[in-house]
């Protein structure tokens, strides 16, 4: 039933049309942006932090290669392109996972769930602003490093953007899965997110080539994580080298499948986790 005299069963006056879903998404995004805008210091601090981390790695890489050593742009490319995906992963994991936790903390999660709005729009709106912000941040970091090393390699930018898009949607799915766990873990969420962040940082070889990982780890852990193929293919097509894990065509297939399936599976798991929490009555519990 459309909005009018009679309410939609269970949804109050909400009509759940595409228009309403879009406006839910828009309103929640606006709320996030307003919240961010109240902490301008955080913006500056986060950006400076990114540059400092990149700077530390760059100094180490320069010493490794040696005075006048060749190949700095390539090494910088390997680090920076892995770093791009790492940034998206960290921000999505923390933002989706933690914003759900924050709503629990403030005591507003239950009220939001009682409102007759689309849950998916509610969840995705939490990361839209942060994804846009991350794009800006990594963009500037890339420009700075590009200038510093005298040109980062950028071979097949279009294909790289295509791979980046599907890697990000895949990461979103991982964010949904993390959020479902956080609903259950509550105060241990911090720990979980830290563990996940470091796990992927090391086992998806985000700051170094995959060849640095011992073959046992490469075969038993790394090759089983779809995101590894996202890192490998994105980095390879930009640096202009052969992928390390498997042939590029197959890596593209894995990344596209990851980008499509991960949000579906992730959202399904989130809804399951949320349903369990509602049945137990622990959704809004701190």
């Amino acid at each position: 039933m459309k909005s009018g005299g009679t309410a939609h069963r269970g949804f109050g006056y909400s009509d759940h049309s595409r228009k309403q879903n879009f406006f839910t998404f828009l309103s929640m995004t606006k709320k996030q942006v307003i919240e961010f805008s109240r902490y301008p210091i955080s913006f500056v601090a986060e950006f400076s932090q990114v540059l400092l981390i990149v700077g530390m790695f760059m100094f180490a890489a320069i010493i490794f290669i040696g005075e006048g050593g060749a190949g700095l742009p390539r090494i910088a490319g390997i680090m920076m392109y892995g770093f791009v995906l790492n940034m998206f992963l960290i921000f999505v994991l923390w933002e989706i996972g933690f914003s759900v936790r924050e709503e629990q903390y403030r005591g507003t999660l239950e009220s939001l769930y009682l409102s007759p709005v689309n849950k998916f729009s509610n969840l995705t709106s939490r990361i839209f602003a942060i994804v846009v912000w991350t794009v800006g941040m990594v963009g500037i970091a890339l420009v700075v490093v590009n200038y510093y090393v005298g040109g980062l390699p950028a071979e097949n930018v279009l294909l790289a953007l295509f791979l980046l898009f599907f890697s990000i949607t895949g990461i979103l799915g991982m964010g949904f899965m993390a959020a479902s766990l956080i609903l259950r873990l509550k105060e241990s969420a911090n720990l979980l997110l830290n563990v996940l962040q470091f796990f992927f940082m090391i086992f998806c070889a985000m700051f170094f080539p995959f060849s640095a990982l011992p073959p046992e780890i490469l075969n038993t852990v790394t090759r089983w994580i779809p995101l590894s193929y996202g890192v490998d293919s994105f980095r390879s097509v930009l640096v202009g080298q052969s992928p390390e894990l498997m042939a590029l065509e197959w890596e593209i297939v894995v990344v596209v499948l990851f980008g499509i399936l991960s949000p579906i599976v992730g959202y399904y798991l989130y809804r399951r986790g949320e349903r369990k929490a509602r049945l137990k009555g622990t959704l809004g519990e701190y």
């Binding site: 290669i65 700051f207 170094f208 060849s211 640095a212």
Partner: peptide
């Protein structure tokens, strides 16, 4: 993180 980078560069002959 930097150790792995160093190790991979070393294995490449640097």
């Amino acid at each position: 993180l930097p150790i792995m980078l160093g190790v991979s560069l070393a294995s490449g002959g640097t």
